[in-house]
Amino acid sequence: MKVIVGLGNPGSEYAHTRHNIGFEVIDLLSNQFGISLTKTKFNALFGKGTVDGQELLLVKPLTYMNASGEAIGPLLHFFKLSAEDLLVIQDDMDLPVGKIRLRQKGSAGGHNGIKSLIQHVKTQEFARIKVGIGHPQHTHDAVVRYVLQGFSADEQMDIDSAMERASKAARAWMTLPFAQVMNTYNANK
């Protein structure tokens, strides 16, 4: 079984914000794969199905971004899965809007959702798809406001394209070595 987790914050006030791009990609995958997110357990909303002969869980933690690991750690334990079975889709302020970057492992890089996952999964070695949301050129308070804003009309086409590429990369991860998926999608400008 494989697990794809999208990071975000629950609640309508956070829907379609920059910080919720992980949730947006999970919604896209849910529609593409016909997997409804109807189960709630471990403080996560998830759905289970089979895609390309592979059992798959699509997951949205309901813990808020900064505590994402509190949901994912117990979920992996319950299903007897390891970090090798995990793909996380996250926002990344260090990438321009609409760019994606795949990483096989690494530190949190200042992302509190990833920091929580590392703490609860007890390793930095899990696959990630980072979706660029851009970065404001201001203070910390501006960063907090920025990630909780939606995308401008000019940015929306780029972000839609990035979400589509992220969904294709996630599907490829299910059946191909992640190094091969990284070579394909990191090279795709």
Results as ranks from 00 to 15, higher is better:
K2Y: 06
V3P: 10
V3K: 14
I4L: 08
G6S: 10
G8D: 08
G8P: 06
N9F: 00
G11F: 00
G11R: 01
G11N: 01
G11M: 02
E13V: 07
A15G: 01
A15H: 01
H16K: 13
T17R: 00
R18F: 03
N20H: 10
N20E: 08
I21Y: 00
G22W: 03
G22A: 07
F23K: 04
V25E: 05
V25M: 13
Q32T: 01
K39N: 12
K39E: 11
K41E: 04
F42Y: 11
N43H: 09
A44M: 05
F46Y: 15
F46K: 10
F46G: 03
T50G: 06
T50E: 15
D52M: 15
D52L: 15
Q54W: 05
L57V: 06
L58T: 08
K60R: 14
P61S: 03
L62E: 11
T63I: 01
A67M: 12
S68L: 07
G69Y: 05
A71R: 02
I72S: 04
G73F: 08
G73A: 09
L75I: 11
L76P: 12
F78Q: 07
F79I: 02
K80A: 12
A83C: 07
D85W: 07
L86P: 01
L87N: 07
D91S: 09
V97H: 09
V97P: 02
G98M: 06
K99A: 04
K105W: 12
S107R: 02
G109E: 06
I114Q: 07
I114T: 08
I114S: 05
K115R: 15
L117C: 03
L117R: 01
I118T: 05
Q119P: 00
T123I: 09
T123Q: 07
E125L: 05
F126K: 06
F126I: 04
A127R: 13
R128C: 02
K130Q: 10
G132D: 00
G132F: 01
I133T: 13
H135T: 03
H135S: 13
H135E: 06
P136H: 11
T139F: 01
T139S: 14
T139R: 03
H140E: 13
V144E: 12
V144T: 13
V147N: 12
V147Q: 09
Q149V: 02
G150F: 13
A153E: 15
D154A: 14
E155I: 09
E155K: 13
Q156I: 01
Q156F: 02
Q156V: 00
Q156G: 00
D158E: 13
D158G: 01
D160Q: 14
S161H: 15
E164F: 09
S167P: 08
S167Q: 04
A170H: 14
A170I: 14
A172K: 11
W173K: 02
M174D: 04
M174V: 04
P177K: 08
F178A: 05
F178D: 08
F178Y: 10
F178C: 05
A179H: 10
M182F: 07
T184M: 07
T184C: 02
Y185Q: 05
N186Q: 11
